[in-house]
Nucleic acid binder design. Structure first.
Lengths: 221, 221
DNA sequence: GAAATTAGTCAAAAAAAATTTACTTAGAAT
DNA sequence: ATTCTAAGTAAATTTTTTTTGACTAATTTC
């Protein structure tokens, strides 16, 4: 009679596909790190969601830390590419300023993982972003473009002020992001559901109003 | 000859003091949870900083989770108490609005742990804040007071708008908090040190300008 | 001043996570 | 067709972190 140990286990026999597996791990990791932060993220959850073996994370990325770094690079590359498409041309400066605000607001609203990853990276005091020269370089052009828009709008008399581009950028980002970053606590505190689409639409209008009225651009009546 | 085991260990013999020990653990835990978030916080680091034994955390609080909850309650209670002192009286509405902005900005700037804890709590999707009825109740009065100020300022002709108090509150908080919450990533991206006191002073002026000009209150020339 | 209580110590156990070892085999390369 | 590389699996093992059990003694209470 044959021994039990001789019977080979019925293995699922997964077909091989390096690109797919690597991409799947990265994509799942974006969500896991966004949702739980670096320390809260679990290697095991990633493998389950990516339907692969934990060994693969070490095979493709080297470890949890390196995987996190890959995630960070990937989401920053994505937003900077989108920003680069948004050229402030020669149209009415007020309209261009409105585009700037609406683009930023909408990108954050539609790409939830981005802000969540940033939030966690700041919890870690920027430990990993500081290592990425790429992220640093990619961001300069956008600030510069805002500066030029401010100059032009002021020179043309469309804006009554000419604010520091960095301050304006921080303000646009703050108004577009804070309610998303803090939906849970702010929502509890003010007794409203900040994740409600209607609420967010109202927030969008308000954000545009605040920025344009600050620029002295006189919004719609 | 006497056996080595018979020699009693030289024990440091710490004097007892329940209040002090409990308060010390809580105070140290505020910093630890603020700095590392719930998952990043280490029980061991807390005990070292509080110069006590890990057993004491379980003795006084029950566990890591309950300690975190105690921390959250404590920092919210503190800010709400400060807000309550800030009564918007009958003075010029523009001045009162300025006080509102400056109070919020300064509180965040001076109480770094508060925003850091909030940031982490939002990472956890408000898991713990939702359990605290106290925090919910304490926050309503401040929003109400802002609403009254908006009414009064508009009626008196000091403000050209009468914004939704919640939107205005979120805006003031966003402008005061975002650069602190995201100092690491924003600083890297814009190539400036947002923790620099001079930078933060400029930010304070900018924040006041943005809010007052939005209210149509006409700032200093 | 004896008994009861509980603050505090020590060291180990339990639990939770990350990482690695050892092996198998699909598919590319020759 | 055969060989070789690396994609993939399974099962420990190591490492890290939280939690508990058993004991000691300082202070309070009666």
């Amino acid at each position: 009679m044959s021994k039990i140990e001789d019977v080979p286990k019925a293995q699922p026999v997964r077909s091989r596909n390096p690109e797919r597996t690597r991409a799947e791990i990265l994509s799942v990791a974006v969500t896991e790190f966004a949702e739980h932060g670096f320390h809260g993220a679990r290697v095991e959850r990633i493998t389950k969601a990516a339907k692969c073996n934990a060994r693969m994370i070490y095979h493709y990325f080297g470890g949890k830390e390196q995987l996190y770094l890959a995630v960070l690079d990937s989401v920053y590359a994505q937003i900077r590419n989108r920003e680069a498409q948004l050229r402030f041309g020669t149209a009415d400066p007020v309209l261009e300023a409105r585009r700037l605000v609406e683009f930023t607001y909408d990108y954050f609203a539609q790409n939830g993982d981005f802000l969540k990853l940033i939030r966690n990276e700041n919890l870690l005091n920027g430990k990993y972003i500081k290592r990425s020269q790429m992220i640093r370089d990619m961001s300069q052009p956008f600030i510069t473009a805002i500066g030029e828009l401010m100059e032009r709008g002021h020179a043309a008399g469309s804006f009554s002020r000419k604010p520091d581009p960095v301050q304006l950028y921080v303000t646009v980002v703050a108004l577009s992001a804070h309610h998303l970053n803090n939906a849970a606590t702010l929502g509890t505190v003010v007794g409203q559901d900040l994740t409600d689409p209607a609420w967010q639409d109202a927030r969008r209008d308000h954000t545009v109003d605040v920025v344009l009225s600050y620029l002295g651009a006189g919004t719609q009546v």
